[in-house]
Structure formats: structure tokens, C-alpha cells
Design a binder for these strands. Structure first.
Lengths: 209, 209
DNA sequence: GTCTATAGCAAGATAGAC
DNA sequence: GTCTATCTTGCTATAGAC
């Protein structure tokens, strides 16, 4: 057997990218943690690399710049929270039940699931790259696509005529994402919180069938 | 109720500090602007000083450190938004009217009034000073005192029995503060937004007298 | 009060050995 | 792939002249 083919049974990542010994996941985990704890600007590549068990210079083998690292964290964060919400919605029934399932899943990932989602929620408003806005323009569509799911869920609710579905969606997302600032583990669980919010909003419903 | 009795204390400048030729306000304005646009960590003392028309070293005559500058911006921001809300609430009538007035004032300052309030809302979650948490511990009570006003307004609402006033307050504040991320001038005004939110929530009321 | 000058340091990123 | 070593740049903060 040709020696070049010895280590072949790998998964076909990108055609030419990472073959083996890929420590990119550890790097992403560390980056997400520091971005959440200190913010993008204050986190240092040295600390991130150290937390992943390597030296600062080595991580440029995986990511060409700090901004690309942030972008990768965002993509992974959106992917995780989006998957969790889709799965939860599929398992729920009724318009209110599906909305509550989505809210619970969103809060679970945001409040207990951890670092990736927190970065997604908090690290967008400020332009992360200072002068270079290229990264930000690639971040916004990711979030918009995710939030569109909530628009669908709100549109499916049977509401009293005249109720603004647009502002209901914005209020729900605001309530969920703002929970980062007041949530403390040990009190109400994410499921409790979603339940309380939905209980508050149910009176907005038109007569249900 | 005693009018104008609830405003935050006036400038507690040290007795001997600023007599004349005081450029501290310009410095604060510039700092608020850069903290909002770039975040606390990414903003530089050089840029702030330049925007206020002085050199970097000169501002240490007014503020002993960057963290103290952030603290001063917070105090001023809280003072402004708090004054605006108190004034608006005093001029409104009825529990829903007072809540709506408070929401409108809050949004006005946050969305159009500008830099100070944005910094107050956005620059708290992450510890601004890195290792030194002294500044943060002085920031939190300021916000808590302000948010307590909304607790009073929500407690005064005539709600259907069983409705959670705590989660209603958190939902309202979340909806308001999250508007920073989606608000674009030229569309609905802050007053429109507050109206829409209150219209959504009014069906939660118990039979009004 | 504001300046110039700079100390002292940490950051992102690169080069090349292994 | 990971290392060491380093380049370059920018930062906060200080010292002392004026």
C-alpha cells in the first residue's frame, strides 16, 4: 500500500483543508469562552491559544486572523441554536406550543448551553473589526435567517385582530435575548422562564378553535 | 406625590474641584460616543481626547483612568434617562398611560438621545475592567435603581389574576433595550414603538374601573 | 490646564526552524 | 502542525516643562 494513502480513512472535510490532527474544535471552544467572558476586543489570541493547549502563533495555521475566528464562532453558534430550535419545534404541537418550545430551546442554549450562543447574541452590535466591516456584513445574514424562524412561529398564532405580529416578534426576541443580563442559575430554569412568558402572552390569542 | 423629588442627586463634584474652564463635559461626550461606537475595550483614550480637542495626556487631569471615565459616562447616562422617565411619568395619567410614557421616554433617550444611554445599556454585561471589578460593582446599583421604577409601574397595572408581574417587567425591559439592535431611524418613532408594545399588552388587563 | 515625550507593556501577526 | 522569536503597532498612564 502506498504510504501516502495509509492515513486515508478520514471524512471528506473540505477537499484540501484539514486532514488529521485537527484541533480546530478546541480552538473554537476556547475562543467562544473568551469572547463571551471578556468581549471580542478584550480577548487575546494568546489566552485563547493557551486555553486550547497551544502557542499563540500556532493558531494562525487554522485561522488567518482574529476576525475570522469570531466569524467561525458565530457560524457555529448560529448552527447550534438553530438546530436546537428546529428540533424542539418539530416535537411540539399547536401554534402556542411550538412557540413555547422554540423559546425554551433558545433559552436553554443561550443561558445554559453556553459560550457560542452568548457570543452570537452579544458580539454583533459593535462592529467587531473596527474599520474593517467585512466580517460584520457576513454575520448579519446569519442572525436574520435564524430570527426569521420566530417570525413564522408568531405568524402562525391565532391573535386578536389588530395585534401587531411584527412587534410581538420583536418583544419576544427582546425578552429572550435580554434574559442574559438578569438570568442567574439556581433560580427559574429556562423552561420555567419560557413558560412564564408564554403564560403572559396567551391572553393575546383570539378565540381558539 | 411630591413633584421633582425623585431626581438623582445633582453633580456631586468635590467641593474644590472644577471652578472654571472646565472641559469635562466635552470629554464625557466624546467618551460616550466612542464607547458606543466601538465598545469600551476598543475605544482609545487618544481618540477620545482628540474628539474633545485635546491631547491624550491632558485628560488625566480630569479622569485618573479609563475605567473612571466609563463610570462617569454611566452615571451621566443613568441620570439623563432617569430624569426623562420621571418627568414623562409625572405628566401621564392612569397606570397604562404612565407605563407607556415611561417606555416612550426610555426609547427616546435610548434610540435618539444617544450615546450615554447606549453605553449604559450595552457596556455593563462584560466586566469593563478585566481583572479589576471595582468599577463594575459601582455600576450595577445605578442600573438596578433605575429599573426599580419600572417595577413600580408594572405593579400598578390592573392585571388578570395569576399574571406574573416580575416576568412582565422583564419582558418590557427586554423589548425596550433590545430595540437598539433593530431600530433604524426613519421608520417608526420611539413613540410609535412604545404605543405598539402597549397596545399588545393591554389585553392582559383585568377589567378596568 | 495643556503640552511633549516617553516609559512600559500587550496586542495581532509573521518567519522560519523542526 | 507546532514551536520560538520577533516585528510592528497601538495602548494606558506618567513625568515634567510651560
Amino acid at each position: 500500500m502506498p504510504e501516502a494513502a495509509r492515513k486515508l480513512p478520514e471524512r471528506p472535510d473540505t477537499p484540501e483543508a484539514p486532514r488529521r490532527d485537527n484541533r480546530r474544535p478546541q480552538l473554537l471552544d476556547a475562543a467562544a469562552r473568551f469572547f463571551r467572558e471578556q468581549g471580542y476586543a478584550a480577548a487575546s489570541m494568546r489566552d485563547i491559544a493557551a486555553a486550547a493547549g497551544m502557542k499563540a502563533g500556532s493558531m494562525y495555521y487554522y485561522f488567518p486572523s482574529k476576525a475570522d475566528l469570531l466569524l467561525a464562532v458565530h457560524e457555529e453558534g448560529i448552527r447550534r441554536i438553530s438546530d436546537a430550535v428546529v428540533e424542539a419545534v418539530d416535537a411540539a404541537e399547536g401554534p402556542w406550543g411550538r412557540l413555547q418550545a422554540a423559546m425554551t430551546a433558545h433559552l436553554n442554549v443561550l443561558l445554559d448551553g453556553g459560550d457560542y450562543a452568548c457570543v452570537v447574541i452579544r458580539e454583533l452590535p459593535t462592529d467587531p473589526t473596527g474599520e474593517e466591516g467585512a466580517v460584520r456584513t457576513r454575520l448579519v445574514p446569519l442572525r436574520d435567517a435564524y430570527e426569521a424562524r420566530f417570525a413564522d412561529l408568531v405568524d402562525a398564532l391565532p391573535l386578536a385582530p389588530g395585534a401587531s405580529r411584527r412587534y410581538l416578534r420583536l418583544m419576544v426576541l427582546g425578552a429572550l435575548n435580554w434574559s442574559q443580563t438578569w438570568y442567574r442559575s439556581g433560580g427559574d430554569t429556562p423552561a420555567d422562564i419560557a413558560q412564564s412568558f408564554v403564560d403572559l402572552l396567551r391572553p393575546l390569542a383570539a378565540a381558539e378553535t
